[in-house]
C-alpha cells in the first residue's frame, strides 16, 4: 500500500544522514524529534527519515565525539535529551560539506546532458 510513496522517497545513505544531523545542529542544540522534524521540513519532505533510524545515527555521532548529549528542558518544561555540535563535529561538518558539494557537482555535470535529451 505504501509502495507508491516509497518510490518518491530517497533512501538516505548512512553518511548522508550523519551529515544532515550535523548540519541541523549547527544552528542550535536540539532533541531527537526536533532534529527529525527539521530534516523533513528543510527537504520539503523529500528526504523522509524513518524517524527511528535517527537514534542509531545520533548514538554513533556521540560515540565518535562529533556531538554531545545533555539533559535539558524543552518548550513545555519537559525533560529531554539535547544534542549539540562539538568543535570536533564542527570540523567534521566542514570537511563533509566540501566533500559532498564536490560529489554533488560531479554528479550534476554527468547528469545534465541526459536531462537535455529527455526534455527537448
Amino acid at each position: 500500500m505504501s509502495t507508491r510513496r516509497e518510490e518518491n522517497r530517497i533512501d538516505l545513505l548512512q553518511g548522508t544522514l550523519d551529515l544532515l544531523i550535523l548540519r541541523t545542529l549547527l544552528a542550535r542544540p536540539a532533541h531527537g524529534h526536533a532534529i527529525a522534524k527539521t530534516i523533513e521540513r528543510n527537504s520539503d519532505d523529500v528526504l523522509q527519515v524513518e524517524q527511528g533510524s535517527l537514534y542509531p545515527a545520533l548514538h554513533r555521532l556521540v560515540r565518535r565525539g562529533w556531538i554531545a548529549a545533555e539533559d535539558g528542558l524543552s518548550e513545555n518544561n519537559r525533560r529531554a535529551k539535547y544534542y549539540r555540535l562539538t568543535s570536533k563535529g564542527r570540523k567534521q561538518l566542514r570537511a563533509e560539506t566540501t566533500k559532498w558539494e564536490k560529489l554533488a557537482g560531479a554528479i550534476a555535470r554527468i547528469l545534465r546532458p541526459v536531462s537535455g535529451e529527455v526534455k527537448p
Binding site: 532533541h31 531527537g32 524529534h33 527529525a36 524517524q51 527511528g52 537514534y55 548514538h59 556521540v62 560515540r63 548529549a69 539533559d71 519537559r78 529531554a80 535529551k81
Partner: peptide, 22 residues
C-alpha cells in the same frame, strides 16, 4: 560511561519522541 548514560536514557527518549509526534 557515556555508553551507560546514553543507553539508559534511550527508552525514555524514544517514548518522548513518539509522544511528541503523536
Amino acid at each position: 560511561m557515556t555508553r551507560r548514560r546514553m543507553l539508559d536514557g534511550l527508552d525514555a527518549e524514544i517514548r518522548d519522541h513518539i509522544r511528541r509526534e503523536t
